[in-house]
Write a protein that binds this DNA or RNA. Structure first.
Length: 553
RNA sequence: GACCUGUUGGUGAAGUGGUUUAACACGCUGCCCUCUCAAGGCAGUAUUCACGGGUUCGAAACCCGUACAGGUUACCA
């Protein structure tokens, strides 16, 4: 076909496309951004809720954009109508927002480079394809699905590269008349790239994360427009990221094998290539097969963003974990700069993992514990209120009804140099402090006690009535316990007891143990005196009575 | 099958040819501190960097091969 014929063809195929690419180039001028500012984007398909991997990806996008003074935008990639899910778009925005990831530009936040939903950009894509047809870089292909399948079968048997290229691209050189004939017959068609590549040539490519990669030049006649006129990912990617002036395409590494195609597409379209950053997937060892696989929404509950909300894992802790897998040196930095924020750290591409990263929930829990330990009791209380309001109404009421008491419990040992680390999720509070409210304690009734000793109720009652003063400080209190121990033939310290066990009935620790079991129903608890102070003498005695009933049963 | 990319302890990783007898963190084990626990402190946890060759005075680091793993090979993204 000569130029005139191609122009004819373009008008026949796209009679309604009146704009030229110049129109769009003008409409979306360069962004006026300072040197080094990065423009990043997150391009989810609205197929449901956000996956941990996507969350990570958008976290990376927004982090890099923010720290460079650039722009992070969100583009809904909904070119496949089959995959659409109702409310999919809202779900994405909600999930991201719950992690404080808010795009600078999007279909919701506005922006000068929209529309930010691909299904609303069809005309733009077709404008460029029309131009490609005129230039001879694209053509309509009428091959039927069965034909393509049989070619692929053939290729598999022959052990050659599978796909539509070279001699297999049957409709590459159809004449204008042949095409018109097909069109008259109402034959369905797609628009394919007429790939100019030669696989003998090796192209070199630099990925910001993976480093240098070489490929054979691309020579497949990839589909550009599907039969319904919508673009494939590849075409949309090239046009959108060019028009929206993305500087860094950050995406999962399942895309690296498409690089030769994308390089060629940008070339043919006359676009500058953005920088590419292919991130390693978040993986997990499959318990059945023992193989490493991507974290899967179907198989792994922790893959869904909603999991963290339901479990009550604090979002800042999750973000801290994401930051530690984003850059390998973040963790150590944060260890030495625990007063600083994630934003204060400068992330770089060369500190990103090249291979897959196993998702380590234990490490997350550790981060979370530390997060809680540094948080004032009042804030923990308030956030626990928010959490239980959504996921545990019953406990929410108890928390509300016992505000001061609960804050006091959460505050135990908070002001020490080494605050306690016994909760890692908001949902832990109910269990961890189950003895704190008398009502719950009555219900629990020593079921948590896992020892076999019976403690002397009279002895402890004597102590409470005659020695316990709740208005002193901790060390004064402990001295009175020692005094009481000595007066009752117990050793004042475990060391004394060990020296000469026959001399004593036990030691001060045994007395504390008895009190602890009686008033908390457990062998282990946070600081005993703090607990006693919070519940007060009357309740202490009430609990001792409960214990009495319990052992006399 | 073809094409890409990886492979350092239970996990994440540092390491870019010579103070590496392989950092740091999580986990695990032990000890210490201590009224219990949590925390904290200390120590242990890879005689060795998938395997086999090679280059070099010297390799976890460079080269080749093999194995294994992951990705792609869609009118899905």
């Amino acid at each position: 076909m000569n130029l005139e014929e191609r122009k004819d063809l373009a008008n026949i195929l796209f009679p309604n496309i009146k704009n030229t690419r110049e129109y769009y180039e003008k409409k979306y001028p360069n962004r006026n951004l300072p040197e080094g500012a990065m423009v990043t984007r997150f391009g989810p398909s609205p197929t449901g809720f956000v996956h941990m991997g996507s969350l990570f990806s958008s976290f990376v996008d927004s982090t890099y954009a923010k720290q460079s003074g650039g722009v992070f935008f969100l583009r809904i990639e909904d070119t496949d109508q089959k995959r659409m899910v109702e409310n999919g778009i809202d779900g994405i925005f909600n999930d991201l927002e719950s992690f404080d990831i808010v795009p600078d530009e999007s279909s919701k936040n506005g922006g000068e480079y929209g529309p930010y939903i691909q299904s609303e950009r069809t005309e733009i894509y077709q404008t460029y394809v029309k131009d490609l047809i005129i230039q001879g870089y694209a053509y309509p292909c009428f091959m039927k699905e069965e034909e393509i399948e049989s070619i692929k079968e053939e290729q598999k048997v022959a052990k050659t590269k599978v796909g539509i290229y070279g001699m297999y691209a049957q409709d590459r050189d159809l004449t204008l008349d042949e095409i018109k004939q097909h069109l008259d017959n109402n034959d369905e068609y797609v628009i394919r790239l007429k790939s100019p590549g030669n696989p003998e040539n090796i192209i070199k490519f630099h990925d910001e994360i993976k480093g240098d990669i070489s490929f054979p030049e691309y020579d497949m006649d990839m589909v550009l427009l599907k039969k319904d006129g919508t673009p494939t990912y590849h075409l949309a990617h090239a046009i959108d990221d060019h028009l929206m002036h993305t500087t860094h395409v950050i995406r999962g590494d399942e895309w690296v094998s498409s690089i030769p195609l994308h390089v060629q597409l940008f070339n043919i379209l006359g676009f500058d290539l953005p920088k590419y950053c292919h991130t390693a997937p978040i993986t997990k060892k499959d318990e059945e097969t023992g193989n490493i696989r991507k974290l899967s929404k179907r198989l792994d509950p922790e893959a869904a963003v909603s999991y963290y909300h339901e479990m009550g894992i604090p979002i800042p802790a999750v973000k801290l974990y994401l930051a530690t897998i984003l850059n390998s040196n973040f963790e150590e930095w944060y260890l030495n700069n625990s007063d600083k924020k994630i934003d204060d750290f400068t992330f770089t591409f060369d500190r990103m993992a090249v291979g897959g990263t196993a998702f380590d929930i234990e490490k997350l829990m550790n981060i979370s514990k530390t997060y809680f330990s540094r948080k004032p009791a009042k804030e923990i209380y308030e956030e626990a209120l928010e959490y239980t309001d959504k996921y545990d109404k019953e406990y929410n009421k108890k928390l509300k009804d016992n505000k001061d008491k609960m804050i006091n419990f959460l505050n135990i040992e908070k002001d020490s140099d080494r605050p306690r680390k016994d909760i890692s999720k908001y949902s832990d509070i109910k269990e961890e402090f189950s003895y704190s409210l008398l009502e719950d304690f009555k219900k629990e009734n020593y079921s948590k006690y896992d020892g076999d000793k019976k403690y002397d109720v009279d002895l402890i009652t004597d102590y409470i009535n005659n020695y316990l003063d709740l208005d002193v400080d901790n060390s004064t209190w402990f001295n009175t316990v020692k005094e009481f121990a000595t007066n009752n033939n117990f050793a004042a310290s475990p060391k004394d007891y060990k020296k000469d066990p026959d001399k004593y009935k036990g030691h001060v620790g045994d007395i504390c143990e008895a009190i602890r079991v009686m008033i908390t129903g457990r062998l282990k608890s946070p600081d005993l005196f703090s607990i006693m102070k919070i519940i007060g003498k009357d309740e202490i005695l009430e609990r001792i009575n409960l214990y009495k009933d319990y052992i006399n049963k």
